[in-house]
Nucleic acid binder design. Structure first.
Lengths: 364, 364
DNA sequence: CTGAAAGCGCTTACAG
DNA sequence: CTGAAAGCGCTTACAG
């Protein structure tokens, strides 16, 4: 019972229409006018095709044409609305260029490597990678560069370009983070914590990695650090907490910070979802946000405007990034473009969780 | 500059290894032992393949084998975490069965129809439809049944089965809604509103559609109505508000209800996201939830446990639904199964927004 | 133990 | 204006 059972082929249409396969193919692909195929013949073909319910076999067409008509987007985490926005926008952009978009949640590094290896078999005509894992010498980068070496057009989002052949687009996460923490400083905070993604090593290893790696996680940390330095606030490792990139993860990290002998009065959280988890953790412990503790985050998703207090957050322009990434990919596919590393501004959206404003309308 | 440029073929591997294409194919597909191919030959093939960086062409394999190795899942809305959970779970289940999963956000009916028509070209070996649009005589249903008639294995989630050849699985939305509204009644509420999805016609048309259509939206309404009837509370159309299935949409609908001369003291919202929007709208207007107004919803996503007040909601077992749907699809593909219409329980998760409990730990 | 050949369903030069 | 033929890159009977 395979789906191929009752499938109609072009040859059958040709037989029913009483013409050759060539004619059917030409008519169905809209080349009839150019080749001057008689109107009556066209009608026969069209009739036969629709009465048989013909639709062209995708695999055969793909093989013959040497292209798939598909673009693939690898995202970090579909649970994060930033990536949903990105995916939906990229799909629309791809479709308006005549391509389908396939979205893969490559949250785990293994998933990303597997997806990239899959692509080697020619499952897509181009790939966009928005996993935030394409800095340094990582397995994912190597797989991507393999693909590129093989001729696959590629674009990187979030990270800097790993290679001159791969244009990249990202938000100015450093600048946005700097602005966010400066905002906290301006509100009078001096004891400011930072929640970042959990990593492998101890806190010292984490700090040195955040200091050196050209990742967006590093950009957050460096923005934080610079804002503190500008205000002559010494860095305090005990104020650096780590957790998974989830609602629960942000809650855990916040509880750690709250349990300190000298807890922070403000915290900069690496993503919106963990920040929402952090706000909730404060509520459960009886710490009032923003009165007792200010929270700012990075992401700027619409959801943040709907929690209470509404989340002050640096807005990542996911829609712009996606649109431009697709355009860049088209540019690569049509031959040109190299050494592109575009950075989009990321501005702070001041809402309620930082204490700068009080209950107002929804600002998104 | 096509991605096909530098692609290595099986023929090249055969040439380098000094054997035939047959041998290469057999060795690479793991049939070497069964056919007793000499170890030395195997090694030559493996060496040649890896030194050339060979990976089999996907389109060619698909065409030749007559199968794609892909399952497609159409979801209603990726912005709703229920569908993200469903997609991630289904992907894992599909992969453990040797298939890839392709997820399509078919929020708009046109997107769904397009995706379904695409599938006619043989882009997948099976399809799962979780759009909530497969009841009655709708264009989407017709396209799906076309596909099924052509031999495509299919499973429907959310809606009832549209055809004996298409097994279906859904949550007991009627039962869950009944329980939710009974809960409000038990808390002493008599003036209970319902927020549902905006439709085409006026409120009378909406009510009659909700009464008659075997949709999950109808199930919500009928659960609501029955709970009221059990408590001898008369139906009041002015308490039926409609809005889009978004954060903002729930806010709008709630504002309508709040603007009534005699506003409700409790509201049952059709999905979690609009319910979160409704809670926020209350906050902005100065209506305290749950003290002034109780809110219950349907969805039961983790996020609801992190907003404040935490959202009381009927839990849709997205993970179970997805796992079982994939299993059902496998069953269809391997020949059997007809007339299946499975219903999973959907129980109320009492959190804070209904006023039955006060600030506790996170309950998800 | 291994190879030559056919064929999956298309598209596209090439003839006429 | 239309058709016969080749070929995209695989897999799989079938020979030997």
């Amino acid at each position: 019972l395979s789906s191929i059972d009752k499938r109609v082929t072009l040859a059958q249409v040709a037989r029913v229409a009483g013409v050759s396969k060539t004619t059917v193919s030409v008519v169905l692909n809209g080349g009839a006018e150019a080749l001057g195929i008689r109107a009556a013949t066209q009608a026969q073909v069209l009739d036969a095709a629709s009465s048989l319910g013909y639709s062209p076999n995708y695999a055969a067409r793909m093989l013959r044409r040497g292209r798939t008509g598909i673009l693939t987007l690898l995202v970090n985490q579909l649970a994060n609305p930033v990536f949903v926005d990105m995916a939906l926008t990229a799909r629309a952009a791809a479709e308006s260029g005549g391509y389908d978009l396939e979205v893969v949640d490559a949250g785990a590094i293994e998933a990303e490597v597997r997806a990239l290896e899959h692509l080697r078999g020619g499952r897509a005509d181009g790939v966009m990678v928005a996993t935030g894992r394409h800095h340094g010498r990582r397995p994912a980068v190597d797989r991507l560069l393999d693909l590129v070496g093989q001729g696959m057009p590629a674009v990187v989002l979030i990270d800097q370009s790993p290679d001159p052949r791969v244009p990249a687009i990202r938000a100015d996460v450093f600048g946005g983070s700097l602005e966010a923490v400066r905002h906290l400083v301006a509100l009078g905070h001096r004891r400011i914590g930072h929640v970042t993604l959990h990593g492998a090593g101890d806190i010292a290893a984490a700090r040195s990695e955040l200091t050196d790696e050209p990742s967006s996680l590093g950009d957050r940390y460096r923005g934080y650090r610079q804002a503190l330095a500008e205000a002559d606030i010494p860095l305090d490792d005990s104020l650096l907490a780590r957790g998974p990139d989830t609602l629960a993860g942000g809650g855990e990290a916040m509880r750690q910070l709250l349990a300190l002998d000298s807890p922070p009065t403000a915290v900069f959280v690496f993503n919106d979802l963990p920040a929402i988890g952090a706000i909730r953790a404060c509520f459960e412990v009886g710490v009032r946000v923003p009165d007792d503790l200010a929270i700012v985050a990075l992401g700027g998703v619409e959801l943040g405007a709907y929690v209470t207090p509404a989340l002050t957050s640096v807005r990542i322009p996911a829609v712009d990034m996606a649109n431009q990434a697709v355009q860049m990919l088209f540019d690569v596919m049509t031959g040109g473009v190299s050494n592109v590393d575009r950075v989009l501004p990321a501005r702070l959206l001041v809402r309620e969780s930082c204490g700068a404003t009080r209950r107002g309308g929804v600002q998104s």
